[in-house]
Every structure is written in C-alpha cells, then in structure tokens.
Design a protein around this nucleic acid. Structure first.
Ligand SMILES: [Zn+2]
Ligand SMILES: [Zn+2]
Length: 733
DNA sequence: AGCACGCCGACT
DNA sequence: GTCGGCGTGCTC
C-alpha cells in the first residue's frame, strides 16, 4: 500500500472544501488535528490538518508545500474533534470555520499552544544584602525591595497589579539589586487532592433535593435536565450541590452564562463553595489572558470554567458536567460567521463526553420545552421561592385615547409618585434609545428616513444628530424639512433620552439613571451606573433591554413597561416569547418580601391574548400555548428550519439567486417559503431577501440541504450577491 | 473571507 | 494624466 502523500487542510474560509498541500521537503506528515501554516494565494493562513490522502482532485502539480507545522501534538482531539465535525455538518458550516471558532484568537493566529515562560524580576545577592534604610529617600524603590526581600521574585505582570512603580523597578535593576529572568509555568493538576468545601452547603428544600437526587440518580452519565425555577427559587444552590460529586472526583465543571450574567457576584458564589482553580472567560480578557486560561484548562489544571458562549469549546481533559444558566438567553446564539447555538452544541458536547448537562431558567425557551415534550430533556421544577412568598400586583394600562407625557400614562405617573414617595426605586423599560424614533414635518408630513435603509432616522438631541440605528449613518439634526423646506419639524414618538428629560423636569427631586447603548458605550460606564443604582443614588431607572438582564435591584418596587406593542406584532416569530421572558424576569424582580412589588404594562392592545396569558396565568401556560401553536404550524422547534439569506445592491440579483436556489430543492422533501423580502428589505444600501426551508424532522432537512447545497454553491447568480445559510435562525432579520 | 486585477468617473 | 470606486475571479 502506498503511503499518503497529501495533507488535507481545513482553512478558516467560508468555502465548504478542504485544501490539499504537500509536506515540507523531507518532513513527515503532520497528524490530524495539528495546526499548520500554509501559503494561500498571496497570503499565508493557519489551518488544521483534517486528514491525509493519496489522491488529490486538484492538479497535483500545482500543490504547494505547507509553510510549517505549528503543533507537535494534535490540538483538537477526542470529543472536541468529534464536536467540531458534528457541528460543521449540523450547521452546514465549513469545518475550518468551526475549528477557528473553537480556538483562542492567539492560536488562530498561529502562536504556540505551549505556555510561554513568564517574565519575572528576581532579587540579586546585592539586593538581598541591601539595607532598606539606604533607600529611605526613594520610597517606591524601598517598598518594592522590601517586597522582594521576602518574596524573592515577582512576575512582571504583577508589578502593576500590586501597584509598584515601573520607575522604581528600573531603578532597582540599574542598581543591580534585581535582575530580569524567566520562569516556566507548571500546572497543578492535582487540585482535587485534599479538596474541602469552602463553605457549608445550604440545606435544600424538598424540590431542590428532588432535583439533585434525580440527576445524581442517573450516575453522572449523559442526561439533559431542564431546571425550571423562578427568580429566588434557588437554582444556583442546586447547581452547587450537583457539582460536588463531580469536583470531588477530580472532574471539571463547565458553567455557561449569558454575556451579562458573568458578574463578580456569580463568580464569587462558585468560588466560595469550591476553592478550586477556576478559569473565567469574560469579555474583558485580552487575547493573551484567554490563551492562558485555555492552556490551564487543557492541562487539566482547572476545576471550574465559567464563561460565555465561546467558553463551551474549552478543552477540558476531564469534563464532568455542564451547566447552562439562563438557557433561554439569546446571547447563546452566535449571530455572525459560524452561527451556532451554544446551548445546542453544549448538549451535543455533554452527550459526547457522556456527562450530565443542566439547563437552568425561570422562563425556558420554547425549544427546551419542546425537548421535554419529546423526552429528550428531563424536567426539574422549583416552584417554591426560597424566601418569603410574595405576590406582585400587575396592571395593564390601556393607552388608547390617553394623553401621555413622554409616553407615560396618568396611571403610571400616579403609581410612580406613590412608590417614589415611599422611598423606593422605580424602573422603566422603553426599548427605544435616542430622543425620538422619527422626525416629522408639520407642514408636509414628511418623515425623515435613512437613504440606505427602509427606516426612519432616530433623533438624538444631546448630540444634535439624527442617526439610523440600522446602518449607523448619521447627520446634523436638520432645521428644515428636506422635502418642503419648512422649519416646522417635530419629533414623533418617545425614546429613552426624551423620557429621561421629561422625568428630570417633572421630578427634579428624584435623581435618575438612564441605561442604554448611548450611556454605556464607554468601557466601565455600565458598571458605574449599576453601582449608582445599587447604592440608592438613583431613584428612577430608565433603560432598554440592557437594564433588564441579569441585574437585581432589591429596592425597585415598581416596574413599568412603557410600550410592549412592538413585540406583539413583530415580523419576528420569536418576539412574543422574548417579551414574555422579559416580562417574567422584571416582574420577578419587583419588590421583595418586605416591600410588595407592582408591574405596569402600557399598551394599545389591552385585549391581546398574550398579555392576558402572561398576567393572569404566567409564563408556563403562555409557553405551552406558544409551543402548541408552533407544533400546529410545523414551525420550529416542532419543525426544522433553515434560512437562506441573500443580499445585493439590486433586489433582482438576490431574488434571482434565491429563485434558482429554490430549484435546487426540486424533488426533495422540503418546504420552501419564499423568496420573500426580509422584514427590513433595504438595509445599509443592500436589498435583503430570504427563503425559509422547512421540514418535519431533522433528518429530512439535513439530507435535502446536503443534496442541494453543492448545486446552490455552483450557481453563477450566487456570485452577484452575498448569501449564507443559517440553521435554526433566531429571527428573520 | 482576503486580495488581486481591471475598467470607468472625477480630480490635483 | 492618475487616484480610487467596487464588480469579478481565484485561492490547494
Ligand atoms: Zn416638509
Ligand atoms: Zn440606515
């Protein structure tokens, strides 16, 4: 048998194919799973070896040798390798894109996967003998030397962390008291030896105990469990109990949280109970810090990994359990490039590792409820609040024919005054940033719209701009109508900026805080505002969705949702579910045992069934009804869906491509809906259209698309537009 | 996805 | 005359 001569490489390109390369002259073939640097056109790319072959469909004479092998041992192996392949197939995504997503940025760029030695500063003999007194005129140097005389060495990165001065460091080095050196990091993989809990676990109530016993009863093998429990019902305590046997066995727990949920309090909660090495992967880390966590994890030196979506790909040699908190949260879905759902891939991963996965939520996704109904997930319910039970009073305010002040009804204003006078905080949600969502000419009725989008400009008063929230274009706030020249321009509708102004004028005695993209764009500003709220320095809290997620403000007793109509009639079939989740989340947070809470919903559709279901029956019945509706319409999650999206400068280009793509499915058992315009057809100067691909079950959708995709890729019309295929889309936008 | 090449309008 | 706009094509 001839030995293989070609290396098959997956590259991070949106091309569903591998590329063949030759090994370097006289060198052995790199193993599958190793990264290689390869020449690609005029550039060089980092790819992953996916196999070897004896034949090449590409003209062998044109093959190039690789530049270099970057890993001495395969980087992606075992279950993660399988996961990458499964995910690529499920999401119809090139393997190279999936693998790229799985690796930290530094490794995508070709850096070494081995931990680099760290730069340190060591005390010299001269430094040892130096009397601290001799430095009494240089306080910073004295302090640093005193530290080093006890600790002998300091890591370079720790110099600023411990607030030593760089100048002092240099001065001591110049004097020969310290010298620069290197130390190889060694990973401690024996963290589970002599493990002891950091605190006494709380006693579980009956439901919590049942939940824990159910999972443990399955022997810590694969099983997906939906842990359903309202705010305050003690989900985290259940997670913590479930982790114990896993940690004791020396296995790692992977905890996935929404982007907004990765707060110091969350981390502290885990760290207090489990004093084991913990890796935290949050958005604040730079690429090097991420690589370090990755290295520790791969070495088996971490007992717990807490992170957002991408942490799901952390290589843990001894994974024992996966926990996803707030599993319904939309941030688990990646919205660009390789569009995967972190929750679904986490379930796949748990299955590959044969470990349990716990999905927690107060408002489970319709997908997860569907998986319960078909027996894929088991349900664990926590109905009891850990603390004192309390009722939240709810009111739907009919906005029809009402005079509003900056979008506030008289009823809501009255309630606000009551709660503010009682010394409590009031929280108002308005999912519209800016001063006003439109600029209207009083003389000719013209609404000023973005020239590149099917959307109106939003007025931003403080910056004196109009801004399109869909493409980002902006210009000075016009003084005259662009159609008729009239100076009678009025804003139409209310945004958070206007609401803030109106309330500041109306209630000057109550300080307020506004939280939206505009007030939190600078790094750290969100934390500052949240802190202000927590300290009670703000009494009225105004914000968009941002304000709702993940924050708990115990002194808020009144929550107002100013305008829920948008969500009731959205083109997005998931909008109602998101409104329901938001509503339950904020309602669950209004008030506490000693202070009863109130929630006010303002709407022009007071009779809408969704609002009644939500306010009178709660989330469960709403979700059940929504699931039933989807099952009847064979929409996801009951049916399987993918969406083929195309955009081009001219609508007919996208239309033609999608029409031709539709024909690629002829004779295949798949339903095509479209081509049809996207909910906002023109965005950023491009016309956007799509076709929905629906099938009754996974297999049918999988097969049909696998058969059609090569034909679609071969379409010439596909070159005249940008297009992509997305499985399980979250919305049609 | 990059990154080239190539062909047209509008500027120093 | 060139600078640069983006349409088109290719990458083992
Ligand atoms: Zn006008
Ligand atoms: Zn726009």
């Amino acid at each position: 048998m001839r030995s293989p001569v070609y290396i098959q490489v997956a590259l991070p390109l949106p091309l569903r194919q591998n590329f063949s390369y030759l090994p370097r002259e006289g060198e052995a073939l790199p193993e599958t799973g190793c990264r290689v640097s390869v020449p690609f056109g005029r550039q060089s790319l980092v790819g992953v070896v996916v196999g070897h072959s004896q034949e090449s469909e590409f003209d062998p004479a044109k093959l190039k040798p690789i530049n270099s092998v970057l890993d001495s041992a395969p980087l992606v192996t075992g279950q993660l390798w399988k996961l990458a392949n499964l995910a690529a197939r499920y999401y119809f995504s090139p393997l190279g894109m999936v693998l790229q997503q799985m690796l930290p940025v530094k490794l995508r760029q070709g850096e070494s996967a081995d931990a680099a030695p760290v730069k340190i500063w060591q005390l010299t003999d001269a430094g040892k003998q130096c009397q601290l007194d001799t430095l009494k005129r240089a306080f910073q140097q004295q302090r640093l030397l005193a530290y080093l005389q006890t600790k002998i060495e300091i890591e370079d990165v720790a110099v600023s962390q411990l607030e030593f001065s760089r100048q002092a460091l240099k001065a001591l080095a110049d004097k020969g008291f310290i010298t620069e050196g290197e130390r190889q990091i060694s990973f401690d993989t024996n963290w589970a030896n002599n493990f002891e809990l950091g605190e006494t676990p709380q006693t579980l109530n009956r439901e919590q105990a049942v939940a824990v016993a159910t999972v443990n009863g399955d022997g810590l093998n694969y099983g997906a469990y939906l842990l359903e429990g309202v705010t305050g019902s003690g989900k985290t305590e259940v997670y913590l109990h479930l982790m114990e046997p896993v940690i004791r066995a020396g296995k790692s727990v992977l905890v996935l949280v929404p982007e907004i949920g990765l707060t110091p309090q969350t981390i502290e909660r885990f760290a207090r109970r489990y004093p084991v090495p913990t890796g935290v992967l949050h958005s604040g880390l730079n690429d090097n810090e991420r690589l370090q966590v990755w290295q520790q994890a791969k070495a088996g030196a971490l007992g717990i990994i807490i992170g957002t979506r991408s942490a799901l790909f952390t290589d843990l040699p001894n994974l024992g359990m996966i926990i996803i908190d707030e599993e319904h949260d939309s941030s688990f879905k990646q919205q660009d490039g390789f569009r995967y759902h972190g929750r679904d891939l986490a379930v796949m991963r748990a299955n590959l590792h044969n470990v349990p996965i716990i999905l927690g939520s107060a408002t489970p996704s319709i997908e997860s409820l569907h998986n319960i109904s078909i027996g894929k997930y088991r349900r664990l319910q926590l109905t009891r609040r850990a603390g004192v039970a309390r009722e939240v009073s709810q009111e739907i305010v009919d906005l029809r024919l009402q005079n509003l002040d900056a979008g506030l009804s008289a009823q809501l204003l009255t309630k606000m005054e009551q709660h503010l006078e009682a010394g409590n905080q009031v929280m108002l949600f308005l999912n519209r940033r800016g001063f006003a969502p439109a600029l209207l000419c009083h003389e000719c009725g013209h609404l000023h719209g973005c020239s590149r989008c099917d959307a109106f400009y939003t007025v931003h008063q403080s910056s004196n701009l109009v801004q399109c929230h869909h493409c980002g274009s902006q210009k000075r706030l016009p003084r005259q109508c662009e159609e008729c020249g009239s100076t009678q321009l009025f804003t139409q509708g209310v945004g958070t900026e206007q609401l803030e102004q109106a309330l500041a004028a109306r209630y000057p005695q109550y300080p307020l805080v506004r939280i939206d993209r505009d007030t939190t764009s600078r790094k750290g500003s969100l934390d500052k505002l949240l802190e202000k709220i927590r300290r009670g320095e703000a009494r009225i809290l105004i914000g968009t969705q941002m304000l709702a997620k993940g924050h708990h403000f115990p002194d808020v007793t009144l929550v107002g949702l100013l305008d829920v109509d948008g969500a009731l009639f959205s083109a997005d079939f998931r909008a109602s579910e998101r409104l329901a989740q938001l509503y339950i989340q904020v309602a669950g947070r209004a008030g506490r045992a000693s202070k009863p809470g109130e929630v006010v919903l303002q709407t022009h559709q007071p009779d809408h069934p969704l609002l009644h279901q939500l306010t009178t029956l709660g989330y469960g019945p709403f979700a059940e009804a929504a699931l039933k509706e989807r099952q009847e319409a064979l929409l996801p999650p009951a049916g399987q869906m993918a969406i083929l999206r195309a955009e081009a400068s001219h609508a007919h280009q996208a239309q033609q491509f999608l029409a031709e793509a539709n024909h690629c499915f002829d004779q295949l058992a798949i339903q095509r809906v479209g081509p049809m315009p996207a909910p906002m057809e023109r965005k950023a100067g491009k016309y956007r259209l799509h076709t929905l691909l629906l099938a009754n079950d996974r297999k049918r959708l999988q097969q049909a698309i696998e058969l059609a995709l090569p034909k679609i890729e071969a379409l010439a019309s596909g070159k005249r537009c940008r297009w992509h295929l997305e499985r399980d889309p979250q919305d049609l936008l």
